[in-house]
Simulated assay, not measured.
Amino acid sequence: MNKVKGALPIIAFVFAAFAAFAFNFPENEVTSKYGSHAGDIYDVTNVNMGPDTDEYQCNGETSQCLFEDQELQNPVSSSWGEFDPGDALIPIPTK
């Protein structure tokens, strides 16, 4: 019985460490989103889709609208249409 009593702090520590990792969920990762219009590239990662001047739209279904990278190589799934930025959105400066 004394051996079990002596091991209780170690068992509690191992259980606490396990619980800390088991219930620590990662936050949702934000996927970067970029669109291209008239030769300019726009970062719309935290921008809503809509008709306002500070939003963007994907009109039609003729081409890929959004990409995950600034080089426009990795398309965002289910984002078809022509990218149309609102007037208040500012393009990324070219290098």
Rank of each mutant, 00 (worst) to 15 (best):
V47Q: 04
F18V: 03
G39S: 11
P75V: 03
W80Q: 00
G60I: 04
L8T: 07
M49Q: 14
M49P: 03
H37D: 03
Y42Q: 12
N24P: 00
G86H: 02
E55G: 05
N74T: 11
S78D: 15
M1W: 11
L89N: 10
Q70K: 03
P93A: 13
K95T: 01
Y42F: 11
G81E: 02
S77H: 07
N24C: 08
H37V: 07
I41A: 04
V14Y: 06
G50M: 12
E71C: 08
A12N: 02
T45H: 00
F21L: 15
F83W: 10
T31S: 09
D43R: 00
F67A: 05
K3C: 03
V44F: 02
A12C: 13
S79R: 10
V44M: 07
A16K: 04
V30I: 15
A12W: 11
T62E: 03
G60S: 03
P51T: 13
S36V: 02
N74C: 02
I41H: 09
N48I: 00
Q64T: 14
F67Y: 00
E55Y: 04
I92R: 06
Q70N: 05
Y42A: 00
F18H: 12
I41M: 04
A7W: 08
A38V: 12
V14G: 02
A16E: 11
N46W: 07
A7C: 08
L66W: 01
N24E: 09
E55W: 03
K3Q: 12
D43S: 02
F23G: 07
S32N: 10
L8A: 09
T53M: 06
N48S: 14
K3V: 03
A20P: 01
I10K: 06
N2H: 07
Q73T: 14
P91E: 10
F18Y: 10
L66E: 06
I41C: 04
D52M: 13
K33I: 06
Q64L: 06
C65S: 01
D43P: 04
N59E: 14
E82F: 13
D52L: 05
A16I: 15
T53S: 14
V47P: 09
G6H: 08
K33T: 08
E71I: 05
A22W: 09
P75A: 01
P9D: 11
G60F: 02
P9G: 10
V14M: 10
F15C: 13
F83I: 12
T62H: 08
T62Q: 12
Q73H: 01
D40S: 15
Y56C: 05
H37G: 08
E82H: 11
E55H: 04
I90D: 08
D52H: 08
T31F: 06
P93W: 00
P51D: 13
F15M: 13
T94R: 11
G60C: 12
T31I: 14
T62S: 15
N28A: 04
D87C: 13
S32W: 01
I41K: 01
A20R: 01
G81W: 01
F25Y: 06
S77N: 09
K3G: 04
Y42E: 10
A20T: 10
C58Q: 09
E68R: 15
F67Q: 04
Y42M: 10
G86E: 08
S36W: 06
I90M: 15
E68N: 10
G81C: 07
